[in-house]
Amino acid sequence: MTAILSSTPTAPTPRRSRFRPRGFVWLVLRQHRATLIVLLLLLVAELFQLGLLGFLLRKDADVRALRDLCAGGGYECVERWSPAADFRAGYGDALHFNGLLVQYVPLLAGLFTAGPMVARELESGTWRLAWTQSVPPSRWLAAKLAVPVVLVLVGVSLMAALYTWCWTAVPTELLPGQRWYDSFGMLGPMPVADALCGVALGALAALMTRRTVPAMVLTLVAYGTVRSALGFVRPYLWPRTRTVSLGMPGYPNDGTWVLERGMLTRSGERLSEDVCGVGVSPERCLATHNADRWYLDHHPPADHWPLAWLEAGILVALAALAAWAAARWMRRLVP
């Protein structure tokens, strides 16, 4: 009897909105509903906080006329002017920790894709449920990639854009640890490209290991390897500038990324600073190595954006490669 009584409500008529998630996308969103709601709230809070920070930074930098105060002044500007010191004390940490967040969110996105999204299904056995429905398993992988990719494109893009906006408000002389080459991974397109790479590597690692914890460890290792490898090649991605001078050049304070300083012999060979540098008299250098000029290899601040877009491009290409490999791996697993 109860069976008959409770039978009154029939199938809820599906809403026919064009943007209603369907198929595996619906499944992935439903699977991680709670997490996604929390992430969304955190994102809103972070964006609000970044917006506020940027607004205050701009206001204070203007009011205190720090830009003019420190223009070309170098680090001493902080010692000389108390508003500059106040500014650094007030905003240095806020900018620093927000930057760390923007830098590490991509790794978290990769780990989340690897563990809870893909590998957990393979480990718990629900993949056999998902892969035996009418929609082919390749779409399962596509949805598992598409959902985090869209989240990253929206969330990380907004975070990176706002952070970059905050960062540009600061006179570079004021926060010496946050010059463009120090904050490289936090600025412009880098966090987004990084996150895409993390997501694709995570999916691939999860398919390969099929276990939650190993998948996350493998993602961490792969992502770390990619990041440090790119860190090594970064100075060579864009042609560097060399200035040659007779006297030993100082390290400029205008945001120039100094790569290498040393002496040049008359035949044009480079001598590193260990052989001929501070503590070695120029006469000896000239006598023993025939070196008479100094060179300074560097990237001027104008190189920042070409370098950033190039490296982001490499990361996106790597992400595409990893996603392709994951699709290939899928095809190996199921007919």
């Binding site: 369907r22 198929g23 619906w26 499944l27 439903r30 056995g125 056999r128 449920l129 035996t132 929609v135």
Partner: peptide, 28 residues
Amino acid sequence: VAYLPQDKPLYPQFTVDDTLRMGRELNP
């Protein structure tokens, strides 16, 4: 082809209704 493995994998956090909804979504 429908397949019911021995350990009957289902998404534990889904409700019964959600599970049937999944069937509808994945078998258009």
